[in-house]
Amino acid sequence: MLNPEPTPKTPRQSWMAVLARADAAAIADQLPPNDLLPGWRLLRGPEAGLIMLRGRTGGAGAPFNLAEMTVTRCTLRLATGQVGHATIAGQDPRHAELAALADALLQDPARHAALHAALIAPLAAGQDAAREAIAARAAATRVQFFALQTMRT
C-alpha cells in the first residue's frame, strides 16, 4: 500500500523531496545558526504561483489538465557558489527559502554529511513513519468479500 515502484531518485532529488514535505520550523531548527553559514543572495523569489496539475486519461493515457495548485518557489546562491532551489506545495515563502538554503548547503561537500545527518535523515524518518501510519490504518481495512449466490436471476 506504499508506492509500489518509486522511481529511483538521485541524492539531490531525494533530499529536495524531503525538504518539500517538511515545514519551515522543522528545517530552521536543524540548520546551523546564520553566523556559521555563508551568506546567500536571493536570485528569484521566494514567490507564490501556480502549477497546472496534469492527469492522464484513464490513469495511463494521454495527459490532460486537471486543475491548478498553489506553490512557492525560491532560488538562491551561496557566497560559496552553490545554487539552491526549492518549489514547495502551498504558500509559505519562509519554507521555500529555507528549503532552497538547505538544498544549496547540502551541495557543499564540506557540509553535506553533517547536514544530511542532522536535517534530512530525521525529517525523512518522520515522513516515512507518517506514511507507514497511514498504510497501517489502510491495511486494517483490507477486506475479503465472499460472493454469495447471485441475487439476480
Binding site: 507564490a48 502549477i51 506514511r131
Partner: peptide, 20 residues
C-alpha cells in the same frame, strides 16, 4: 492573481500511496 510557473508531470496514480 497568481502567475503560473508551468505544468506538473502527469500525476502517476499507479504509484498512489493507497488509502482506499
Amino acid at each position: 492573481t497568481l502567475p503560473r510557473f508551468g505544468a506538473s508531470l502527469p500525476l502517476d496514480t499507479e504509484r498512489m500511496a493507497i488509502r482506499r
